[in-house]
Design a protein around this nucleic acid. Structure first.
Length: 596
RNA sequence: GCGCCCUUAGCUCAGUAGGAUAGAGCAACAGCCUUCUAAGCUGUGGGUCGGUGGUUCGAAUCCACCAGGGCGCGCCA
């Protein structure tokens, strides 16, 4: 139980009372007892379903249990009144002092307010981005990066021991194609007479990456190796001579770019794991060996997929993993026909590595197009960990960039696609991060460049930042109005807040009281977007309170001739700012001190 | 054909581990600036929660089926 969570405290009170009424209450029933905030103020501040959920186990009608609960709860110190209502709800009205008492707690805790113990003792690995190092990060990678980063922060706030990880997909055909593309830029740099068309004719699978971002890599290669990677007449040399060298350098150059993109986005992952290194270490073969020993591998022939059989389909014996034993639809191949490992085989080895590092939960943040991949990975993690480790996937749907109501077309081939760098330069890190979190991850989203920069309520980034800036502005003005009076958060934590009794004030405080359970619920649901919506609502409550000062000057926060009243109001303002900062920290957004 | 995700106000979306009369923003309409920043605030109208059944004291939420949209389905990663 989190002592700074008012709702959690009341739940304990209700459970204690319920235990007196129903002595042998089963634990699973007790677990279903909830305290919710009420939608209708006529129902009080909070309501509990305790009587309804325990009725069956207690063999008593809900109304009877509710009546008994009311008696017990009316004796609780924080509760002003309890009454039964509707089908068996018990509505609770708290003394407003119970809410006010949160302000000193918030101010003393600072941004740690809302920290939960839900995840204490659970080690979680969150893997995200994991883009192929084949070019600059684009908008498609960005959502996963932000969602993953915010989710990791959120889990950390909820008490989980979190590791942020990036899996570099630097093995396989894609990076070989990349190396060929970089080699082309190298040949250009050393003055090869070949045309792009002539070169492309010689590339197995064709020249796939034509973006200009490889020109620099080509120049670097030329500077370091002169013409030694080409034939004497500056044509294509045998791949044995150059492929590994070019691949190494190109991947390194791409990863440097990716890391810089991530840095600009405010993403800092602790671990970068390389697929190439994994393959080189023989880990994939080792894990296949182990699964074989466990009887989970066999040679078999898969049925062709129904409905859409590929042209060149032919039955072929393959090395298959019994993923169907662990809930997958079909068994999955681990080796290609040429004997090399599939991506899946390498990925099993990678996740086995994560399992061996002692995590209890592995979360992969993936693009929605990887949805079909999830069941087999889930199966694999169950198999290699003997069900001890849980694998979860958070799928991010596609993002459409909009400008002036029109979609911004992206063409990788033409090199006109929107890079993350472009986006960051145009709207800034904080707006990108916040906006990416204003939708559920698994819902498609439109990223409207005009709206993200708008300074209106329509733009949640602005609206929340504005609320924080207003809080800070009030505190700055207060420092001038009352020179010599200490008004740091720690000072305001000691001030009396008894005078805060108006409806808008209490509405705001109630919202602040919801922060801990918002964190907890969002973390358990793996939904960082809930933080953004909470902050938007909180900002709305604050702006409303602020505007009351327009109609009635006595309701303004700063009252020059009433220092005690002012200090109480400053405590509320400061606590609001604390919670906004606490939420923005989860989102990885920097709070602003003033709007300009 | 199969699997996963989605469908809530005219538009874009929330809906807190099944709770009471389903909420915001935009758009529409009506108000509020000698101010701690009006970059904002207040109010009004607008809904058979895709459809039909089921479970339950109680369903937008859970289950089944159906319709519509998206993604995926051996040697791509």
């Amino acid at each position: 139980m989190n002592p700074s969570d008012l709702y959690a405290r009341l739940r304990e009170t209700v459970l204690a009372a319920l235990a007196q009424i129903v002595p042998d209450l089963p634990a699973d029933v007790a677990a279903r007892v909830e305290i919710t905030s009420t939608r209708d103020p006529a129902h009080g501040d909070m309501a509990t379903n305790a009587a309804m959920v325990s009725a069956k186990a207690a063999r008593q009608p809900p109304a009877k249990i509710a009546a008994a609960l009311v008696q017990h709860l009316n004796a609780a110190p924080e509760i002003a009144s309890a009454e039964s209502a509707g089908p068996g709800f018990v509505n609770l009205r708290l003394h407003s002092s119970a809410f006010r008492a949160l302000l000193p707690i918030i101010l003393a805790s600072g941004e740690a307010y809302g920290d939960a113990t839900t995840g204490t003792g659970t080690k979680v690995n969150v893997e995200y981005v994991s883009a192929n190092p084949t070019g600059p990060m684009h908008i498609g990678h960005c959502r996963g990066a932000v969602v993953g980063d915010a989710l990791a922060n959120l889990l950390g706030k909820a008490g989980f021991e979190v590791t942020k990880e990036y899996y570099i997909n630097d093995a396989g055909a894609q990076v070989t194609a990349l190396a060929w593309a970089a080699y082309w830029r190298y040949l250009q740099a050393v003055g090869s007479p070949m045309t792009e068309h002539e070169f492309a004719e010689e590339v197995p699978g064709g020249l796939q990456y034509r973006g200009e971002y490889l020109i620099e890599v080509g120049k670097t290669l030329a500077a370091r190796f002169q013409a030694s990677l080409a034939t004497p007449d500056l044509g294509i040399a045998s791949p044995e001579i150059w492929l590994d060298t070019v691949k190494d350098l190109t991947i390194e150059a791409m990863m440097t770019e990716v890391r810089e993109d991530l840095r600009l986005l405010g993403v800092q992952q602790e671990i970068f794991s390389s697929e190439r290194a994994l393959v080189a270490s023989g880990a994939a073969d080792a894990i296949i060996e182990k699964l074989h020993a466990d009887g989970l591998i066999y040679e078999g022939v898969l049925e062709p997929p129904k409905g859409k059989t590929p042209e060149d389909w032919e039955p072929r014996p393959q090395t298959l993993f019994r993923s169907t034993d662990f809930g997958d639809d079909v068994d999955r191949p681990l080796r290609k026909s040429d004997g090399s490992n599939t991506y899946f085989a390498n990925d099993i080895a990678y996740h086995a590595d994560k399992v061996s590092r002692g995590y209890d939960v592995l979360i992969d943040v993936l693009g929605a197009d990887h949805g079909g991949y999830v069941p087999r990975m889930k199966a694999a993690v169950r198999a290699i960990s003997q069900d001890a480790v849980k694998f979860e996937a958070v799928l991010c749907q596609i993002v459409h960039i909009m400008r002036g109501g029109q979609p911004v077309r992206m063409s990788k081939r033409a090199g006109t696609y929107v890079t993350l760098r472009d986006l960051l330069e145009e709207v800034g890190k904080d707006a990108v991060r916040f906006t990416m979190l204003t939708r559920k991850a698994d819902a498609q989203m439109e990223f409207d460049l005009d709206q993200v920069l708008a300074t209106t309520r329509e733009n949640p980034v602005f609206y929340v930042q504005y609320a924080h800036a207003r809080c800070r502005s009030v505190l700055r003005a207060a420092a001038e109005m009352f020179p010599g009076t200490p008004i740091a958060d720690q000072d305001l934590a000691k001030t009396s807040v008894d005078t805060l009794a108006g409806d808008p004030e209490l509405t705001l405080i109630r919202r602040l009281a919801l922060w801990p359970r918002t964190v907890e619920a969002a973390a358990l649901a793996r939904e960082p977007h809930r933080i953004a919506f909470f902050l938007y609502d909180l900002a709305g409550d604050f702006h409303m309170l602020w505007n009351r000062g327009k109609d009635d000057a006595t309701l303004r926060f700063l009252q020059p001739d009433q220092p005690a009243e002012t200090l109480a109001r400053l405590a509320l303002v400061a606590a609001t700012a604390v919670v906004i900062r606490s939420g923005l920290a989860v989102m990885g957004v920097t709070p602003v001190e003033e709007m300009r």
